[in-house]
Amino acid sequence: MGGASALRGAGGEDPARRLYGRIGTFLTDQRLDPNPANYAFAYHLLANPDGPLARAVAALTDGGVRLTQRDIETLGCENKPVANPKAIVQKADGLVAQTQMQVEGFEDMVTAIRAETEGFGRDLAASAEAMQRSTGGDIAEIAGITAAMLERVRTAEARLDSATREASELRKKLEEARDNARRDPLTDLPNRRAFEEAYAAQAASGERICMAVCDIDHFKSVNDRFGHAVGDRVLKAIADALSTSCKGHLVARYGGEEFAVLFAGVDLAAARVTLDAARAGVATRQYRLREDDAPLGEVTFSGGLTAATAEDSYQSLFQRADQFLYAAKTAGRNCLRSD
């Protein structure tokens, strides 16, 4: 009894029970499944609130952004130093940009050298022809040397041409790599990182902005009943529906079963009509299993929508849209809530 009492806090509550409650709250707030891996992650995070894992999570969730399952897998829960993920992303961006500049500079240099060697080759060819028309052994010897030099120049031109093609291909691959880093591999939509960058660019332009946060209703039950392969097909279907209905606006997979839409140049009423058309289209569609054509059941999503003000930051705008999403969930799902 004495040992148990010593472990209790000032409020008389067992610290272990209190930690258990905080873990449950964390998983609920982040909309993470209460599986062993996520529970272990939350335990390591909350048991050491000043540790490296906590600092990494704080950087990722700055502004009210929720963790995704991929974030959990990337960060892990081992008790070891964890680098700031935003710093890693920025460093990688810098390295890719620097490499691109070097490749482009190399390509320009090779092009300039090639132009010079072409001119040099033409001059040598003209000199060789002139020498061959002259008389005398010395002239013939010089002509032979010049011809050999001309052949070397032509070989160098061929190598430079090959190097130019390789540099161009490398630059294309780097551009593809940068694009892939901002794209969700399952749905092929822009990811959270690309969404945040697009918002920053749109806000800087001064154009009107509305933001929506959407979440598939009861998505966990789809995975539990039919498996993750079917869940992935549902995610793709929602992605296609949102992209089609919100054409001309940026649709991103924000993480897990959550999507975000950045409406530019339209007011709140127009954005709501567009988003509600997407919601209604998803709700009325009959989804079936590919394997046996059995009905999948109702698939719907809920959404929160808000218009940006001059005082808004990205974090405040996203938080407000997320609060409206929560209101839509509370209201029964398969609906929208907005300003």
Results as ranks from 00 to 15, higher is better:
R290Y: 05
A58F: 06
Y199T: 03
V103G: 11
F301P: 04
P295I: 03
A140Y: 01
Q315W: 02
E107N: 15
T111N: 14
A83N: 11
Q100P: 03
Y287K: 11
A10C: 02
I209L: 04
N191W: 05
V65K: 07
S302N: 13
P15T: 13
V65I: 09
F26Q: 12
I238C: 09
A140R: 04
I113S: 15
A148S: 13
G3C: 02
A294V: 00
F41A: 06
K247A: 15
G144P: 03
D267Q: 09
A252H: 03
E151H: 05
D184R: 03
A143Y: 01
T300Y: 00
D93W: 06
L242I: 13
K220M: 07
M1W: 07
D292A: 09
L275D: 05
A283M: 14
A237F: 02
E157R: 06
F318W: 10
A198W: 02
A328M: 05
G105V: 10
S162F: 09
L186P: 06
C335I: 12
C77Q: 07
A125F: 00
F259E: 04
A204R: 11
R285F: 06
Q90R: 14
P52V: 11
G297Q: 01
A270L: 13
T300W: 01
S168Y: 08
D123C: 04
V230M: 01
A163W: 02
D276I: 10
L235Y: 01
T61P: 00
G3E: 01
G121Q: 02
N191S: 08
V234S: 03
A4S: 15
I72M: 08
A201I: 09
A327P: 00
Y43C: 07
L242Y: 01
K236H: 04
I142L: 08
